[in-house]
Design a protein around this nucleic acid. Structure first.
Length: 435
RNA sequence: GGAGAGGUGCCAGAGCGGCCGAAUGGGAUGCCCUGCUAAGGCAUUGACCCUCCGGGGUCCGUGGGUUCAAAUCCCACCCUCUCCGCCA
């Protein structure tokens, strides 16, 4: 959620920033929101005035009654009752307007960072780093999609996964399952130097999923458990972002850096039929997520650091990768600035997004109400608080990395060599063969 | 799932429907006293919103209701604790 106050202090600035996202409807919404904000404050001011009168009168009534001046008291009570009725209708109006405004604000996306590149689609995302490690040509025996290789090796059994759970669920078996788990362990261990490991719940409340921006707009993308009013997390980001919801952190404790392994559940409602084979797009997958709570000043360096961590994991796995920056027209709703790490998979001949690292500004923190308090140079708390900035990104998203390994490490005989970086977690399996 | 108890400021904890944004104690901070320490004295100590910067409003788990007036009464919900049941 963007700062409501910006609607009156810098509406033009907000318009300029949001127009870069290329959705003209947003500007209408913005105008509507600004109008509602003015109305809301008018109502509020009037209400406050009436309340102030009622409060004063009520006190007088109390005094008069104590002194036995019943007639005078009753006259005042009548007056107050009238004011009360007016106040009540204003309150109704206030709630109505406030709900409209809130719905609009929840639907408005974040303002892009000034340095975020302009563009209208993913075609306009500039490559920032790389490609690194990309061979000029790939032999024919690496131009095989991972599902063919993996099914032949007996390490992917999507047919049975579908039998159990339906389309777009996957199942790794044997060395394939081991490698999936090895990748999560690899993802966690390499980032434990600065992150606290957290194992958060995978089912969360509506409020939690609203804070990150998934709700209310993208309800169709998430699995809901209606009976208990819970949602399956689409990413550990959802759980972690709300960790300090309603709390005021000390700036001296920032940045708070967390990492979590969790399953991620996605309905993929908008992409039915796409990438249905293999492991590129699935309803449930494992992921190691990094997240940081920071001051606005700390955020840019953290963003760079997190992008570096996501990219270096690919480098260490020996996968060809590149880093792209997401342009304003392709940016997610909550994002302020975003970099994606992509890995090249020769079998499907595609760059696969394996990590998306984003800076959210205070957009999520405002929704989730996570604040921090500054301290002066003597360590004294400064009065007041402000919203923290949040950043997050995948440290390692298992299925696509898994697929990229199968395709990049496929040998001429159909076996797959295990990248050295994950040998410690592979129970001595260094080559996956079909026997 | 059943029975009971409870949710108030940084913490503990009091609170007759009006004089309660809230006693008291602790903690923290500042000043004073003090040879040092201990003890003591005085003072300060929540957040948010609006503002014509005078001030006004909101918040005592959450949401409704009653009333001229609600921390205080009524209803619903949420959470915590104890006991029982069930259970990896």
């Amino acid at each position: 959620m963007i700062d409501q106050r910006l609607l009156r202090t810098d509406l033009d600035g907000v318009k300029t920033a949001l127009s870069r996202r290329g959705d003209p409807n947003l500007l209408d919404d913005l105008d509507n929101a600004a109008g509602l904000d003015v109305r809301l404050r008018d109502i509020q001011a009037e209400r406050d005035e009436i309340r102030a009168k009622v409060n004063t009168i009520s006190k007088e009534v109390g005094l008069l009654r104590r002194d036995g001046k019943v007639d005078e008291a009753e006259a005042l009570q009548a007056q107050s009752r009238e004011l009360g009725a007016t106040e009540k209708s204003l309150a109704g109006e206030h709630d109505e307007v406030s709900e409209l405004l809130n719905d609009l604000l929840l639907g408005l996306p974040n303002l892009p960072h000034p340095d975020a590149p302009d563009g209208v689609s993913d075609d306009d995302n500039p490559v920032i780093t790389g490609p690194i490690g990309l061979k000029p040509t790939f032999p024919d025996w690496q131009r095989v999609p991972h599902w063919e290789t993996a099914e032949a090796l007996g390490i992917l059994d999507n047919e049975r996964a579908t039998k159990i759970s339906g389309a777009m669920f996957t199942m790794q078996r044997g060395a394939g399952a081991t490698m999936a788990r090895a990748l999560t362990q690899f993802g966690l261990d390499r980032n434990a130097d600065v992150h606290e490991e957290v194992r958060p719940p995978s089912l969360v409340t509506t409020a939690t999923l609203t804070a990150t921006g998934q709700l209310p707009k993208f309800a169709d993308d998430a699995y809901s458990i209606e009976r208990d009013d819970l949602w399956c997390v689409p990413t550990a980001e959802a759980s972690l972002t709300s960790l300090f919801s309603g709390e005021v952190l000390d700036d001296t404790d920032l940045p708070v850096r967390l990492m979590a392994f969790s399953p991620s559940f996605r309905r993929e409602a908008g992409s039915a039929g796409r990438d249905t084979r293999g492991m590129l797009r699935t309803h449930e997958f494992d992921k190691v997520e990094m997240l940081a709570f920071a001051t606005p000043e700390q955020a840019p360096a953290l963003l760079a650091d997190m992008v570096g961590r996501a990219a270096s994991a690919m480098a260490d796995l020996g996968l060809p990768y590149r880093v792209i920056e997401i342009c304003t027209g392709d940016m997610g709703q909550s994002h302020h600035r975003t970099f994606d790490v992509e890995v090249y998979a020769p079998g499907v001949d595609t760059w696969l997004e394996v990590s998306s690292v984003s800076w959210f500004g205070d957009y999520q923190a405002r929704r989730g109400n996570t604040r921090f308090r500054r301290h002066d140079e003597n360590g004294k708390p400064i009065k007041g608080s402000e919203f923290v900035h949040t950043l997050n990104g995948s440290a390692l998203a298992v299925p696509r990395v898994w697929a990229a390994i199968i395709e990049n490490y496929r040998n001429e005989d159909g076996s797959v060599t295990v990248p050295e970086a994950i040998h410690p977690y592979m129970r001595n399996i260094t080559v996956i063969r079909s026997d």
